[in-house]
């Protein structure tokens, strides 16, 4: 008997942004779920929590954190984790996620997703901390691969081997960001298909799709453009590799009206459903 590690499949989702709160409530779109940025709702009250609860009353919601710093070397921030836990109890998300990175050191938060060296030491360090977080929150969390612009001389393995090793040793799940794979592949010159092939499929719970800025000799993960063709193609390959995985679009700047993003959501749904149909032949 095989026991699934993952949470139930949610379908096609979208990142929840304040610019869309009112449109979502006025005319609830054909979306299966929303992903909310955890930190935006770690506030005492007012509009953010009001709208999140309104959205949650109509949709499944997952929480996506940006400052756990699970790869960091400062002690885990238990005050932050207590706040996350309280939000989890209030919103009852389908799952929660954060990033495989560090976000600061020495008590300073850089508010950025900074890359880790891919070493055995880092695998053990990060996995131990993920386990502590999971014990505290009482559930498996998802960790996301980040876009990176540099790699370290000290790295001993590929990024995908590192991601897989951390997920196995921590017994956590993976949020595989397709755009981040594309961006990092361009910046470091690896084959994104090799990345997909190297990720433990049974732990992949969610995908992100997003746009970026292409500077020719490097690519920056800006989330300010529609999802570009190479990322759609890589998503098709991911669907081939992983089957139906809950997937959503992240848009963080130059945010268009909801109906414009819905065109991308529909394209994502077609690709996901095409693969599902193919899987059933």
């Amino acid at each position: 008997m095989t026991v699934s590690l993952t949470y139930p499949h949610l379908g096609i989702g979208l990142g929840l942004r304040k610019e869309h709160y009112q449109s979502i409530l006025d005319e609830p779109p054909q979306i299966d779920w929303f992903e909310a940025i955890t930190e935006n709702y770690l506030v005492p009250g007012g509009k953010p929590l009001h709208f999140l609860e309104q959205v949650r009353a109509r949709y499944s919601v997952v929480l996506h954190g940006v400052s756990l710093s699970v790869g960091g070397t400062d002690p885990l921030d238990w005050d932050y984790l207590r706040q996350v836990k309280a939000l989890v109890e209030r919103i009852e998300p389908a799952w929660i996620s954060d990033h495989l990175c560090f976000t600061g050191a020495g008590g300073i938060n850089a508010h950025d997703l900074l890359p880790l060296p891919y070493t055995g030491e880092a695998v053990r360090h990060v996995a131990r901390r993920i386990r502590q977080v999971q014990d505290f929150l009482g559930r498996r969390i998802l960790i996301e691969n980040v876009s990176s612009y540099l790699s370290y001389r000290s790295s001993e393995m590929s990024e995908w081997a590192f991601l897989g090793a951390v997920a196995e040793e921590a017994d956590c799940l993976i949020l595989l960001d397709i755009n981040n794979i594309y961006v990092s592949a361009r910046n470091h010159g690896f084959d994104p298909l090799e990345y997909l092939a190297g990720v433990p499929a049974e732990r992949v719970q969610q995908h992100h799709l997003a746009g970026h800025q292409d500077y020719g000799d490097h690519v920056i993960d800006t989330h300010d453009h529609p999802v570009p063709d190479p990322v759609w193609r890589l998503y098709e390959a991911a669907v081939q590799r992983f089957g139906p995985v809950s997937c959503m679009i992240e848009r963080d700047a130059d945010i268009p009206p909801l109906e414009v993003l819905m065109e991308e959501v529909e394209r994502m749904r077609e690709i996901a459903e095409g693969a599902q149909a193919a899987a059933h032949v």
Partner: peptide
Amino acid sequence: PSTYRSIR
């Protein structure tokens, strides 16, 4: 520099 988890 920021010492906060949330940039808010």
